[in-house]
Design a protein around this nucleic acid. Structure first.
Length: 319
DNA sequence: CTAGTCGCCTGTTCGC
DNA sequence: TGCGAACAGGCGACTA
């Protein structure tokens, strides 16, 4: 499943390979993958065909391609092509001689600036992800915009798709604000994990990273967020950031290969997890101090939470 | 307004 | 061996 670091790798890979490319033709193989596009498949294809990819930006697990009428055109004149990989989505860059992938949902046939023909393929098994076109609105800086703020012209001001505007900055965002997250945490009665998973508070944190960060910070998922000290909050957010940055370094090395590894192969699962999925196994931190404490799995928000019953004690008044 | 639940999806794993 | 149930979970839509 693509986590935030993989999505950033995908963004960088698409930008690296397809900047300036013209989208010559588009095929929607499964309309469910464009269900968030209000105009339906026909409109999706019609608007996209003939446009140029001029930038690729990201916030949280959303990424979007900025489109223009020419390779140097104004991206604000056209909607953005928003991509969300959901749980099982992949973006693959291949040439058309490669056989169609299993679960291929959308194909963009593109012509690169050097004249080479390629395909950007959206592959998705579970169809939680998708693509859609969405109007852009002005914003402050977004990650991945290639043009440095100082040298931007009027028509290169940062924009964000309307559907993504409510998404908070993520821990890999250079404008990520610890203080804003802290402030939101103090204003809610919810448990801390619910906050970590709330897109409008902090984005890009899924169930795995949430559990791992809570384990590192020795916090119970149901501890009311407002009861965390400033130091605990700092430690928790630092833990999230550290794991993500490590995964980004691990996964961000390979997009020069022939089949462009823009597919979100997770470097994260290669390393050992301390909490997530570890039910029944001893907590490694407890083992180091000569204690045996077994990681437990507990239902939470219609899914699972994993924690060490010793390091991550149940709060006195669980919510 | 906030808090919390539900449903979308399908491949894999599990128990009977 | 076969077969249905449980499970995985991001996130928009919905309810209270």
């Amino acid at each position: 499943m693509p986590e935030l670091p993989e999505v950033e790798t995908v963004r960088a890979g698409v930008a690296h390979h397809l900047l300036g490319a013209c989208i010559e033709s588009v095929t929607v193989h499964d309309a469910r993958s464009v269900r968030r596009h209000t105009g339906g498949s026909v409109d999706f294809v019609r608007v996209l065909e003939g446009t140029f990819i001029v930038d690729v930006a990201r916030r949280g697990k959303y990424l979007w391609l900025l489109l223009a009428e020419s390779a140097q055109g104004d991206a604000r004149a056209l909607p953005g092509l928003v991509v969300h990989l959901g749980m099982s989505g992949q973006l693959l860059i291949k040439d058309s001689t490669f056989a169609p992938d299993k679960h291929l949902k959308i194909t963009l046939d593109v012509l690169l600036p050097d004249g080479a023909a390629m395909q950007l393929r959206f592959v998705d098994q579970r169809i939680f992800g998708g693509m859609f076109l969405d109007e852009l609105e002005p914003t402050t800086d977004v990650e991945g915009t290639l043009i440095p703020a100082a040298s931007r012209s009027e028509q290169q001001l940062p924009v964000i798709p309307r559907a993504v505007a409510h998404i908070a900055r993520d821990p890999l965002d250079s404008h990520f604000s610890y203080a804003e997250v802290r402030s939101r945490m103090l204003r809610t009665s919810s448990g801390v994990k619910r906050l970590l998973l709330d897109q409008s508070v902090i984005s890009g944190v899924g169930n795995i990273y949430a559990d791992e960060a809570l384990w590192r910070a020795k916090l119970h998922y149901n501890k009311p967020a407002k009861t965390l000290t400033a130091a605990q909050t700092r430690e928790l957010l630092d833990a999230v950031t550290e794991v993500m940055q490590a995964a980004l370094v691990a996964g961000g090395t390979s997009f020069d290969a022939l089949y462009v590894n823009v597919n979100g192969q997770s470097g994260y699962f290669d390393r050992s997890l301390n909490a997530y999925g570890q039910a029944g196994k001893p907590c490694s931190r407890c083992l180091e101090s000569g204690r045996t404490s077994i990681i437990v799995r507990e239902p939470f928000m219609n899914r699972s939470s994993y924690r060490c019953p010793h390091c991550q004690r149940t709060p006195r008044q669980p919510r």
